[in-house]
Design a protein around this nucleic acid. Sequence first.
RNA 1: GCCGUUGUAGCUUAGCUGGUAGAGCACUCGGCUGUUAACCGAGCGGUCGUCGGUCCGAAUCCGACCAACGGCGCCA
Length: 429
Amino acid sequence: MQNIKDVLNLESVGKTVHLRGWVYRIRTSGKLTFIILRDSSGMVQLLSSARSLKEDEHKELSSLVIESSMEATGVIREDKRAVTGYEVELSSYKIYQRNDNFPISRDLGEEFLLDNRHLWLRSREFSAVLKIRSTIFKAFTDFYYENGFYQVQPPIMVSTATEGGSTLFKVPFFGDEVSLSQSSQFYLETFIFSLEKVFTIAPSFRAEKSRTRRHLTEYWHAEAEVAWVDNEGMMEIEERMIEYVVSSVVRENEEELRLLGRDVEFLKNIKAPFPRIRYGRLMEMAQEWGLNLKYGDDLGADEEREITVHFDKPVFVTHYPSSLKTFYHRPDPDNPDEILCHDLLAPEGYGEIIGGGERIWDLDLLKKRMVDYNLNTEDYYWYLDLRKYGSIPHSGFGLGLDRLAMWIMHLDNIREAIPFPRTIRRTKP
RNA sequence: GCCGUUGUAGCUUAGCUGGUAGAGCACUCGGCUGUUAACCGAGCGGUCGUCGGUCCGAAUCCGACCAACGGCGCCA
C-alpha cells in the first residue's frame, strides 16, 4: 500500500499503484465513473470503466457514495483533466464499506458542523487545522528541549486555586471534593528547585461562563517556569519560542495555510524581538488613538482589538498596576505599585495569548499578598515552603495553545482551532 | 451573570398585512465515454423547536419554556 501523495509524480507514471482511502467525490458520465479518493496525505482521481473492469464491477463502483471506504489498484498516468494532475485507471478494488449517504454535504451550517465535528474532521479544511495544530504542539516542545528544559507532568486534580476560586470545576472525590486544574504554574514552580528550567503542556479548566470567540472551558495550556530569570529574560525566551513555532508552521504547513486562506507572508515576518510597551505608556498611546482608557483600567476585548491592529507583530504589555493582576506577581522594586509582569498580545486583533512574569520569592511578602486576597495560607503550605527553603528569583508564563493556533490560522472562533471544543453549552461530540 | 438573534425535509433555505408548505443539495432510478461542488429528467422526503392562547382558520399574531448561535464582563 502507498500514500496518495507518494505516487503523484512522474516516476510513478505507467506503474501499478495500490491505494486505500475514502471516496471524497464521485460522479458518472456515461459509461465512465470518476472517484476522487482521499487519504491522510492527499487525493487522486480514480477512473472506473468497463474497459479495465468487468461490467458488474464497474456498476458496483459507480454506486458508491461519499465517504465509502475502499482499496484501489490500477495504473497511474498523468492527466491534466484530473484534480491533482494524475489519474489511476482501476483494474481491481476492494470495498470496505459502502455507507449510506454521508450527513455532511455542500451546504453547511455552523451549528450542524459542531454537532457533527466527529465527521467534519475528515474535511479538507479541518484536516489542515489538525495538521497545523500538530506542528504547533511539536514545535513548542522541540523549542524547549533544544534550550535545555525538562518536560514535567503536574497533577490535574488539585485542591488549591491558582486564579481565584469562582472559576473552579468541582469534582467528587471519595466523599470529598477536588478541583480540575486551572493552571499548572504553582506545581511548575516546585520543579525548578531540582530542574531549574521546566515546561509542560496540560489541559486547564475554567468554569467561567464566558461566551466569546476566544474562550473554552477546557483548553490546552502550555506553561514554563525558569529559575534565575527575570521578567525581561522571560520575554526573550517567549518571543524566540513564538518565532520558532510560527516559522515551523510556515515551513511544514504552507499548503495547509493557503488552503485556509491564511496570509503566509504575514507569518513570515513574525520575527523576534517583539515590541515592549509599559502599561502606563500604552494608556497614553491609547488616548492618542482616541480610546476611552485611563491609567488603572483593564484592557477589554474591544481595546485589545484596537491596540493590536496598530502592530504587525505580537506585542508585550508590561508593568501593569498591581491592582489589575493576581497575588503572586512580584512588585517592581523601583515602583511597588506596578508589577514585573507581561501579557503578549497577538496582532490582527487577536489579543492576549500569553500571561507571565516574575513571581514573588520573598516569603513574608507572598504571605501578605495572600492575606490581602483572602486566601487560606494553610491550603498553600507547599507553595509557601518553596519560599522557605532556598528561595530564588524566577519567572514563568502560560500560553493558550488553542489561542495561538487560532491566531496562526487566522480563524474567526477558537472553536475552529480545537477538534472537540468544550464550551459552556457544548460537551458533545 | 447581563444583552441580543435564530429555530420550516438529513443539510441550506423561501414562505408579504393569518387562508392549509415551495426550492436547491444529499439519496434512489433513468440518460450521457472526460467529469471537476458536472449536467439533464423523474422519484423519495415536512405532526413548520415544545406547550398553551387568540381566531371560522396559525409556519405566520401573543405568552411561557427549551435549544443553539452572537456579543459583553472574566481570562490563556
